[in-house]
Design a protein around this nucleic acid. Structure first.
Lengths: 198, 198, 198, 198
DNA sequence: GATGAATGAGCCTTCATTCAT
DNA sequence: GATGAATGAAGGCTCATTCAT
């Protein structure tokens, strides 16, 4: 009704958002196993057929959810990185670790569903993208700042290692029922890892 | 028809093994999405009904595959750990990292399917078990050996960090198309990480 | 294929009717044991999936068939009852017995399937409904007309007895290969029974 | 073990009984829908294969249960009939009605399962047998005793009617949640029916 | 574009029955 | 005869996707 009045472009954008939001809700509320296209359509208050006007298939809808989710994560982390680029390495590392944890803690249910219920292949590319983005920034902004001593290491190798380890640790920390360290301790360890490896 | 002529399928234990092996093969050959009970039965040269004499449902078959796979991994790693317990920490760390990588490299296709196609929740418990086993051994055998200086750290915290980081890194290394470091470099880094964090 | 070319199946009400009719046909043609959802779908020239858009499960389809069948029976009997309410009791009883028999004779094959192949529990409620409807009308319309002498009996008791006996006798008469009385004799007996017990 | 020592004939008789008893128990405990050959074998503490040494198929096992059940019913009723043959018709009718009701009340759960859960066709023959037996006795023993006035009626017709009506009414009385007459009232009515129709 | 009824391939599972031991 | 593991046909049902309106 009201939608009919909107400019075309707007409408389709809105539909995509509506569908993605509905899919995210279903994921969080019912889990991945129970996510059906009909349920998503219901939640989006849209007909099942309309889904296929904006997405080629069910998988692509879920992928868009994870893509947006992981992009947001990347955005937050990169933003923090950029914001603290002028500070000393430790401060920057700390800020970044904090930013990552906060980002992961924002929607732990979705994080759990994405990380544990979805086949990893479904969000692998997103994660690779996130890792690459962070790595690129890391290398670009910090690369020049390496102490001659640290220079012995290959930045590609270091960033691969750090980013992967930090990501895994942070995610598992948020998801673990009862992790054997506090959040602050984890941040300390993450910072230490970053500094040691760079 | 043809089956009628064959000796009756072997009993229980052998049957379970046959089914699990078939499921593994299907997983590797066709992927998780295409694993159906009928396909597993076909591959096991067994009737679909027989599956249900040994497993309550499809999920439990897949679970057994992952359980056995991850158990084997754990076995290898723990064995190496125990074998090198009397050596100096670095040698032990190196041997363990090697053992883990070798274990993961033994069946990379299955590793990929389990890690990327299966919903993580399907093998989460297995992984937690693996991690716990390794952590326990680590703490038991190395705990007493800490230098007073290293004593500053909580072993639970250290082992959680190390095990998780090493696991993630090793798996990703094996699965990555084109990792930015050689296998030897990774081992070096893993050893360094272990020594640094302990 | 062929279906693709046909006009889209008619909607809701018509679809329900189509399915119920198909189920009835299958019941009559193949018997209850051979009624499968796929067979019903075939006969209805509808896809198996469509069945489940209108019925929650197979049982409910069969239930609808019996419900409609028994409702029709009830309708006929009640209609006759109402039509002859102003006549003397014997005429009314006779008309009703006739109506019941005619109704049962209309689809003897379905009657046999419903009465003999279906578990009685599957149409028990329908039958109870039929009996209640007839009893209610009986008591409402005839109740006031009882001769003082007849008043000695409890109408609830009388109607229970009569309705049950008449129903059983009539059904068995229609279903019996070779009943030891003619239809007219049965009607006479049913009438006598009704008059005697009221 | 102990069974091995028994004479052959005994053994097979005992097995049949064991199986039939188990089937009856399953029927009562789990209902007809959940009666499977495996469950019967379990309950009989016998292997599934053994069932087929004594019965051609599942249906025949259930049939034996109903046959025995209905035969017992017939036995009781016929016995009562014979026992009271020398008394006046009303006393005999009353005794018979009582005997029937008592017989039905002995195992109401099995009655319900047989009457409501089993497809009627599965016990139709048994019922026909019961009815025939009772009718035969009725006609044989009471036939000669008819008053000349009653003689106007065809005994085959009368007995068909009476037996059927009495059977239906008695069964429904036992099965009804809340029948609108007492047991004594029903007996009175059944007796009246018998006397009136004979 | 939007709709939503219809589709139908295909899945998991059951269970009466068999037959080698 | 007894066993019971194995069988396998078949069934009910789901759900991603389509397409006539």
């Amino acid at each position: 009704m009201a939608l009919r009045k909107l400019p075309r472009q707007q409408r389709s954008r809105e539909m995509v958002d509506r569908i993605v939001a509905a899919a995210r809700d279903v994921l969080v509320a019912d889990g991945y196993d129970r996510l059906t296209t009909n349920r998503v359509a219901d939640r989006a208050e849209v007909s099942p057929g309309s889904l296929y006007q904006y997405f080629p298939d069910k998988a692509s809808i879920v992928e868009e959810v994870t893509a947006r989710y992981v992009d947001r994560l990347a955005e937050d982390v990169v933003a923090s990185l950029v914001d603290h680029v002028h500070e000393d390495p430790e401060a920057m590392a700390r800020a970044t670790a904090e930013a990552l944890l906060s980002a992961l803690e924002r929607d732990p249910t979705l994080l759990r569903v994405v990380w544990e219920e979805l086949p990893a292949a479904r969000h692998l590319d997103d994660r690779l993208g996130l890792e690459r983005r962070v790595r690129d920034v890391l290398r670009a902004y910090l690369g020049g700042r390496q102490s001659p001593a640290a220079r012995r290491r290959d930045p590609a190798r270091s960033s691969w290692l750090i980013v992967l380890a930090v990501e895994s640790l942070a995610v598992r920390f948020v998801l673990d029922e009862d992790p054997p360290l506090t959040r602050d301790e984890l941040v300390d360890d993450l910072v230490a890892l970053g500094l040691a490896w760079w």
